[in-house]
């Protein structure tokens, strides 16, 4: 098992970095793709833990179906930018602060 040290370190950094980017990013499409990368990293973790059934299920559901449902929601709500600036009348009233 000693040759697994470097792949595990790379996988941990990839998963946590993708999760942080999914929360911080302002473009919602990039955040959804990062959630798919988190699911992919998790599927690799399940494979290292000797569980092939669970890895198959997570790869099929987490990467394919969750991403497509999120993208259909983005298409129907057309909110590409996160944390929407307030509409113009409230902006004028409060002097433009958030």
């Amino acid at each position: 098992m000693n040759w697994l040290v470097i792949p595990i370190i790379v996988l941990v950094i990839l998963t946590i970095a993708a999760a942080i980017y999914a929360v911080i990013s302002k473009n919602l499409l990039y955040a959804v793709v990062s959630t798919g990368v988190v699911s992919l990293g998790l599927s690799m973790f399940f494979f290292i833990l000797q569980a092939p059934d669970v890895a198959l299920t997570e790869a099929a559901i987490g990467v394919a179906l969750t991403t497509i449902i999120f993208i259909i929601t983005i298409r129907n709500t057309t909110e590409i930018e996160c944390c929407d600036e307030k509409k113009s009348k409230i902006d004028v009233k409060k002097g433009g602060e958030k």
Binding site: A19, A31, V32, T35, S39, V54, F70, T77
Partner: peptide, 25 residues
């Protein structure tokens, strides 16, 4: 802490994945 509805649902999905990994480990 987020104000956009879609970000809240993304956070829910990531927390679900973390719990499953903890259980398996």
């Amino acid at each position: 802490a987020k104000k956009n509805l879609l970000k809240i649902v993304i956070g829910l999905s990531i927390a679900d994945s973390g719990l499953n990994l903890l259980f398996m480990a």
